[in-house]
Design a protein around this nucleic acid. Structure first.
Lengths: 160, 160
DNA sequence: TTCATATTGAGACTTGGTCTCAATCTTATT
DNA sequence: AATAAGATTGAGACCAAGTCTCAATATGAA
């Protein structure tokens, strides 16, 4: 059993919940994914490996993983969610490319410090935060120049 | 016609789109709402005023209002969306209370500056950002002390 | 007025996720 | 090992928010 899975097991037991094979299989898969994934992608991965675990259980377990702080849930502008495990590496925020969807991780202790200050000023007990910077990544900025040659003159909005 | 509605009309026309009565009615209502609202709340407000505008049109118009930068869309942790118009007042971020849902607006030029620096470092052309600080507001912190008297000992997770 | 095109309404549909509940599993106790 | 209490599960119904379709209608230019 991976050490992260063991940590999850400890969390489950500390909460007086039961450690099931489903929870173990799901957690193993989560910590195998070294990239962002959606709940449904995870469900499909598990199915393809021959596990007969229901979508409900996948969602339920992701919720527990999130509560255990071993996994974090990222909200996209579209309203969809991605998950990523936190395998020892520190908390981070994201730069998200609006063209290709690429996500670049970053961490700024300066920003975090300012956030704490703002919370304190507002008598607010901060429990978490979410910072996303949207824009166009360097790759897509280059691509744009090519695509621009065929750019439309009229009604760009109704197409986008 | 409110000046914001006129701005929206100008935006629509600049995009070679048509200015319809529905768009005007929706925009008027949006700029009447001096607080956050969901798309559905807006739809209901309009219906109650006797307007027979379909949900699809409300959603479509909100999308245009967002593109015109006169309205911004806020994502909640739950995956739901709120809208708020930007009636001249500057961009701001939010402190969101996880207990009562209250939102406190703030603005930090220091954080914005750091965001720009991070974008530049990553060769990223920033177009926007989204910063939310989650926590418990001062009112709910007080309340908590009362509720705590009846706090549960076992399985807090399965109830929450 | 006419025409080409944009917009609309109604409701079907989609997506992402939650809920229900009987059957099954886990753990503690005998 | 057997039992009992309670937690977990799977299947699929359900839900909410939002999108899509397409015929009917409205808009604006000529």
């Amino acid at each position: 059993m991976k050490s992260e899975v063991r940590k999850f097991q400890q969390f489950i037991q500390k909460q007086n919940l039961l450690w099931s094979t489903e929870r173990e299989i799901i957690a193993e898969q989560v910590f195998d994914n070294h990239f962002h994934f959606t709940a449904d992608e995870l469900f499909i991965q598990l199915s393809q490996k021959g596990n007969n675990i229901s979508r409900a259980t996948v969602y339920r377990t992701l919720e527990l993983l999130e509560k255990s702080s071993l996994v974090s849930k990222i909200q996209l502008q579209s309203g969809k969610h991605l998950y990523e495990h936190i395998f020892g590496h520190q908390h981070h925020d994201h730069l998200i490319c609006q063209k290709c969807g690429k996500m670049i991780e970053f961490h700024s202790t300066d920003i975090e410090k300012l956030q704490k200050e703002i919370s304190a000023e507002n008598d607010f007990k901060m429990t978490g935060h979410c910072l996303k910077i949207y824009g166009i990544c360097s790759d897509c900025q280059k691509e744009k120049q090519i695509n621009n040659q065929s750019k439309q003159k009229t009604k760009p909005i109704s197409r986008s």
